[in-house]
Amino acid sequence: MRFNLLQAGLLLASLMLIDTAQAERTLLNVSYDPTRELYQEFNTEFIKFWKAKTGEDVQVQQSHGGGGKQTRAVIDGLEADVVTLALSGDIDQISERAGLLPKDWQTRLPNNSLPYTSTIVFLVRKGNPKGIKNWDDLIKPGVSVITPNPKTSGGARYNYLAAWAFAEKNLGGKEAAKEFVKKLYKNVPVLDSGARGSTTTFIQRGLGDVLITWENEAFLALKEIGAGDVEEVVPPFSIKAETPVALIDKVVKKNGNEDLAKAYLDYLFSPVGQKLAAKHFYRPYQPEHANPEDIKRFPKLELFTVADKFGSWAQVQKEHFDDDAIFDQIYTP
């Protein structure tokens, strides 16, 4: 115990030292799960860029987690200078519930504040033993599907909405779509709270025949852990996942980081940011700046947006994911 106290004491002292040395400005970027690798590299690039431009040394801190958890943390006072989240609905919540940024935040940056987008694809076992090609293969009996809980995960909401839109388009009507997602979720043995949890369940734990996931997450999983065991299947029709970024006005004003945060977000839309996004498997909004090799990896498929099929995220939330809304109904025994 004495050793322990001594250690802790030393540590406390060193922490204080670090604290006093930390005169440089720091920016906090609160993001969702799959963007870790992207921002790890982007932050390094941005720090270099800022140093070259202004001579100032800065730090960028990252916080990652399930989209719902991260949004709630910002609303509860996690002082994010910028947020880079999975869906605009989450940032709307920050504006609405905490009033930290204006309602029209999405118009303040190019391309509706979307430096990159993504879509939803499938990962299957090597050789695709269950022959999964499209959304309607997922509801076949005996197919085990891994997808996170749409109540807590942004990515899972895209998964659900893509399946819904597919059914509405091909089977016709809301009732058919509801029946379709009901059958789909009957095939789901585990609901993790976030996209990352589902990926580990599918790849590490070897559970399920197919994983519905972000395109970037699928690429990354293939690269990092799954190559050889799993392969990607791209359905002909899917959702355009619009993953926006925003500056949190009240926080940057308080921290005196306005210029820095603004430059940080602008840099995402710059050629360097676009190139990095493509490198990390996000579809950049200006593909001409990216490495053509990276762009080639993105398959062409028919994409729809949430606005196309569902109106707004507020409507989606109310109709599908609120308590006793459709997602709850399909689980009611």
Binding site: G66, G68, R97
Partner: peptide
């Protein structure tokens, strides 16, 4: 409880 929290239903 966690699920409710992440849907901002603090009271729930």
């Amino acid at each position: 409880i966690i699920t409710k929290l992440e849907q901002y239903e603090y009271a729930g």
